[in-house]
């Protein structure tokens, strides 16, 4: 079966987007003995679910995401996607990094088409999809611009299009909006919700912003550090599509307050400097 046929085949298969993380440990060899980055992590994510992974820096949330991406491997335990163990980056996965990692020497459209080029899929078949994605995210007419002509928010939008190009069943995002200013971040949160609502795929979204985690997610995984583990899983029951004003509702602030108290009880926040 050709790779494009494989990618097409992943769609519409029940359970294709399910992610199961079972008893995962990750240790790194360090100078003074080994360092435990993840300890006994168990998560089950349903296909099409939006899950935020929230925690302080150094809690292993990025490590967990990299393990799901097949870019890193757990020391113990197993991770499956659609029932298949992940030992290499899955074919139907998109990854968005904190920095946009656009290639300076390619224009916008060719940056979006990069996964297609690397997988040797026919460009002409995927170009309309790339243009449609750019249009969806508000970048119509920017196809031939160079990355260095774009603002930070526009660059990250292009990176999201690149991750979505091959219509992945699994989208992994590692603090994708962490480097953006607050207003651009709000805009992109809304756009990400739109994209996800229009084409439900499993999303694992790593962040250290409590309100961003709650705003976007169906469920929030709360992580603590040393060792990195999941301390609570909080289902977010807020109607969709959510608007920015949802953040001022009592229901929303209750979720945020609850998570903040959770961090405080683990000695991570001291009741001050909360976003």
């Amino acid at each position: 079966m050709s790779e494009s046929a494989q990618i097409a085949a992943f769609e519409n298969v029940p359970g294709a987007g399910d992610v199961r993380i079972h008893a995962v440990d990750k240790t790194y060899p360090g100078r003074s003995g080994s360092v435990t980055a993840l300890k006994d992590v168990n998560v089950s994510v349903k296909g099409g679910e939006f899950v935020s992974i929230l925690g302080p820096s150094g809690c292993g949330k990025s490590t967990l995401l990299r393990c799901v991406a097949g870019l890193d491997h757990p020391s113990q335990g197993s991770i499956t996607l659609g029932g298949q163990p992940i030992d290499a980056p899955p074919l139907d996965m998109g990854f968005v990094f904190q920095r946009d990692v656009l290639l300076d020497w390619l224009n916008v459209i060719n940056n979006v088409l990069l996964p297609c080029k690397l997988k040797k899929l026919p460009i002409h078949q995927w170009k309309p999809k790339a243009l449609a994605l750019l249009k969806l995210i508000g970048l119509a007419g920017f196809e031939h611009r160079r990355p260095w002509e774009l603002s930070g928010g526009m660059r990250q939008r292009v990176a999201i299009c690149r991750a979505l190009l091959l219509n992945p069943t699994l989208l992994l995002m590692d603090e994708p909006f962490g480097a953006l200013d607050a207003m651009t971040r709000d805009e992109l949160n809304l756009e990400l919700q739109d994209v996800w609502l229009s084409n439900a795929k499993t999303v694992l979204f790593v962040t250290h912003s409590i309100s961003e985690a709650v705003f976007l997610a169906d469920r929030v995984l709360v992580m603590s550090r040393s060792p990195g583990r999941i301390v609570d899983v909080i289902p977010v029951d807020l109607p969709r599509p959510r608007t920015l004003s949802v953040r001022e509702t009592p229901a929303f602030t209750k979720y945020v307050a609850h998570i903040r108290q959770l961090f405080e009880s683990f000695g991570i926040l001291r009741g001050t400097n909360v976003r």
Binding site: F95, P115, L118
Partner: peptide, 9 residues
């Protein structure tokens, strides 16, 4: 960037 390339094999 290296991870990006590896993520699409």
């Amino acid at each position: 960037a290296l991870d990006l390339f590896k993520s699409v094999r």
